[in-house]
Amino acid sequence: MEQGTVKWFNAEKGSGFIERENGDDVFVHFSAIQGDGFKSLDEGQAVTFDVEEGQRGPQAANVQKA
């Protein structure tokens, strides 16, 4: 798993970007967020995640709040 920080997340659209510790920013969709309840992330929040190849390039998967 990688570690990173939420660069921004739009709760209305359900997507945003995570700033990786090593590498380019990666797209995140709300469906990749693990946990119960409303799936959203806050700017500056620390997260851990896997990276998968999506239709438009790398994207975060199995996102967990650190």
Rank of each mutant, 00 (worst) to 15 (best):
G35Y: 08
V63H: 03
V28H: 02
M1H: 12
G23D: 08
G16F: 06
P58C: 09
Q3R: 15
D42G: 10
E52I: 15
A60Y: 02
Q45W: 10
D50F: 14
G4E: 02
A60V: 02
G54T: 14
A60C: 03
E19G: 11
I33N: 02
A32D: 07
A32S: 09
I18A: 01
K39C: 08
F30Y: 11
E21S: 12
A11V: 12
T48V: 10
V28L: 07
S31N: 06
Q55C: 15
F30Q: 03
D50R: 14
G14S: 04
I18P: 00
S40C: 14
Q64G: 08
A11Y: 11
V51Q: 04
G35H: 08
N10V: 04
W8K: 05
F27G: 00
H29V: 04
K39M: 07
D50V: 14
G23T: 05
E43G: 12
G57F: 07
G35D: 08
D36A: 13
V47E: 02
E21N: 11
Q64M: 11
F49I: 00
F27N: 00
T48G: 03
H29E: 04
T48D: 03
A66W: 11
S31E: 02
Q55T: 13
Q59T: 08
R56S: 10
G57I: 05
L41H: 01
G57W: 08
V47K: 01
A32I: 03
A61G: 07
A11F: 11
G23Y: 05
D42K: 15
D25W: 14
K39Y: 05
P58G: 05
R20Q: 06
D24H: 12
F9M: 02
Q45P: 03
E12R: 14
G4S: 01
K7G: 01
Q59H: 09
H29Q: 05
Q55Y: 13
H29I: 05
R20L: 05
E21I: 11
E21A: 13
K65I: 13
F9V: 01
G57A: 05
V6T: 03
G14C: 08
N22V: 10
D24E: 12
Q55I: 14
K39I: 06
I18R: 00
D50I: 14
I18Y: 03
D42I: 15
V63P: 01
K7P: 00
K13R: 11
G44V: 01
A32Q: 07
F17W: 11
Q64E: 08
S40K: 09
A11M: 10
A66Y: 12
A46T: 11
G4R: 01
E53H: 12
S31K: 08
Q45N: 06
A61S: 11
F38C: 11
G4Q: 01
D42M: 15
E21D: 11
G16M: 04
E53D: 11
Q45E: 13
M1E: 09
K7E: 00
I33D: 03
K65W: 09
Q64F: 10
A60I: 02
D25H: 11
F38V: 08
G23W: 04
V28G: 03
S40A: 08
N62W: 06
D50Y: 15
E53I: 14
R20V: 08
K65E: 06
Q3W: 15
M1R: 15
K13W: 10
G4W: 04
F30H: 05
D25V: 12
Q64P: 02
A61F: 12
A32N: 08
A46C: 14
T48A: 06
G44L: 03
N10P: 00
F9C: 05
A61T: 12
E43Q: 15
V63R: 01
D24P: 15
F38K: 06
F17S: 03
Q34S: 10
D42F: 15
G16R: 00
F27H: 03
F27Y: 10
N62L: 06
G44C: 10
L41V: 04
N10G: 05
M1Y: 10
L41T: 03
E19I: 14
G23A: 09
E21T: 12
K65F: 11
Q34A: 11
N10A: 07
G57R: 06
F17L: 07
V28K: 02
E43R: 15
K39N: 05
V6N: 02
T48L: 12
L41A: 01
A32V: 06
I18L: 08
K65H: 09
L41Y: 01
M1P: 12
E21C: 14
G44I: 02
V6Q: 02
D24T: 14
G14D: 02
A11K: 15
S15M: 15
N22T: 10
V47D: 01
K7T: 05
V28E: 02
F49L: 04
G35Q: 09
G37A: 07
E19C: 15
Q3D: 06
F49H: 01
D42N: 14
A46E: 09
D36T: 13
F30S: 04
T5R: 14
Q55P: 15
Q3I: 13
F9E: 00
F9A: 00
V26I: 13
E52R: 11
V28F: 12
K7D: 00
S40N: 06
I18M: 02
E19N: 09
E52Q: 12
S15V: 15
N22S: 10
F49A: 01
D50P: 00
D24R: 14
D24V: 13
P58H: 07
E2K: 09
F27L: 03
A46M: 12
E52T: 12
E2G: 07
K13G: 06
F38L: 07
K65Y: 10
N10Y: 03
E53Y: 14
S31L: 07
R20A: 05
S31Q: 06
G44T: 03
G16E: 02
E43W: 14
G37W: 06
S15F: 15
Q55H: 12
A46S: 11
V6C: 08
N22W: 10
F49C: 02
I33V: 07
G14Q: 03
V26M: 05
N62A: 04
F38S: 06
V6H: 03
V6E: 00
Q64L: 09
A60T: 03
A66C: 13
K39F: 06
K7I: 06
G54Q: 07
K7F: 04
D50S: 14
D50T: 15
Q34M: 13
E43Y: 13
R56Q: 10
A46I: 13
G16Y: 04
G54N: 08
S40E: 06
A60K: 00
V26C: 04
F49K: 00
G37M: 07
G14E: 02
N10R: 03
W8N: 05
Q59G: 03
Q55F: 13
F38N: 06
N62P: 00
A66P: 07
Q34R: 10
F9K: 02
G14Y: 03
E12V: 13
K7V: 04
R56W: 15
G44H: 07
Q45C: 09
S31D: 03
G23R: 07
I33Y: 02
G57N: 06
Q34N: 10
A61W: 06
A46N: 09
F17P: 00
K13F: 08
D24F: 11
G14R: 02
D25F: 13
A46Y: 13
T48Q: 09
G16H: 00
